[in-house]
Amino acid sequence: SLATLPPFFMRGSIIQLADGELKRVEDLKTEDFIQSAEISSELKIDSSTVERIDTGQTPNVVVIQFGVGELKAQVSVEVLMEYPFFVFGQGWSSCCPDRTTRLFELSCAKLCVGDVCVSLTLRSLG
């Protein structure tokens, strides 16, 4: 459902890294994703650059176009404007950080065109 964000973006949610370590969602660092992907047999990290942000057809929804991976494959996702993405070297960022902070108490930066987000893909696709 588009009505709400998944519960794990709520401040204080406990996240398990690939090595078993537990961290709160607000304490995650870029290295946590990179290191978890390194020991994953199936998943690898891609760099996905925000290329466009458009308002969606539904209130509070945005369409974000990413250039994914080295080939900058074009992928669009439709998400709530408060949906947080993890930007390399910066942390949680959303199109409406005020809403993200108000609804989930998760501190966010503003997601902008040019930001490079952490995304996942399958190792076998490489």
């Binding site: 398990q16 994703f33 998943l43 996905s48 080939l71 992928v75 993890f86 893909t121 696709l125």
Partner: peptide
Amino acid sequence: VPVFPWHSLVPFLAPTQSD
């Protein structure tokens, strides 16, 4: 207390592969 896996938090953006 629920524990969520790290890979739930970042999007899976698989580029479309040519068949």
